[in-house]
């Protein structure tokens, strides 16, 4: 019994610093997540979350994305080699293959200070026509959209967002 009490006491003492740390970490992470609002993703995947297609046959799916207000991303075919194009990738071994992707044409954009140099960009909502071929079954596909965003005076580093689609192939 004595041993049990000593063990309990020891564990309680050992847990003290950890217990003291937990609320601190919680409040810290809450503060961080509220701060995270300062740097939201420039592009959001909107829909579809789930699609039903014919197994082993090509199906065109429209993937909808939104660029945050005030930002633009390079189109799939930027006017310059040094700019990073918007691209879509699907993992190879998932039972779902990206046979082709048709990107919308970009809109011309120029920085006010340098109106001669036109960029090809997406703003607002844009749609990628993705041609998918899926084997029979249910597949949770986690593709990625890679892009590089700027506003009218500065740029952010290239970034990728997940494009999660539940593909049901019958």
């Amino acid at each position: 019994m004595n041993r049990f009490i000593v063990l309990q006491l020891s564990l309680a003492l050992a847990a003290l610093p950890l217990a003291a740390q937990v609320p601190q970490e919680d409040s810290q992470s809450r503060a961080d997540s509220s701060k995270a609002g300062a740097k939201p993703a420039a592009v959001t995947y909107l829909f579809p979350e789930q699609i039903t297609v014919t197994a082993d046959k090509s199906a065109v799916v429209d993937l909808h994305f939104k660029v945050a207000n005030g930002l633009h991303v390079n189109s799939h075919t930027p006017h310059s080699d040094y700019l990073i194009p918007t691209t879509l990738k699907l993992p190879d071994s998932n039972g779902v293959r990206l046979a082709n992707a048709t990107f919308p044409p970009g809109a011309d954009y120029a920085f006010a200070i340098n109106p001669q140099e036109k960029l090809s960009v997406y703003t607002g909502e844009f749609v990628i026509h993705a041609e998918l071929v899926a084997s029979r079954g249910n597949h949770l596909v986690e593709g990625t959209l890679h892009y590089q965003a700027c506003n009218n005076e500065s740029c952010m580093p290239p970034h990728s967002i997940p494009v999660a689609i539940d593909v049901i192939a019958k």
């Binding site: 945050a68 207000n69 930002l71 740029c155 952010m156």
Partner: peptide, 10 residues
């Protein structure tokens, strides 16, 4: 001064 309209402006 910002003209970004700024939901996610840098």
């Amino acid at each position: 001064t910002s003209s970004t309209g700024g939901d996610a402006g840098i």
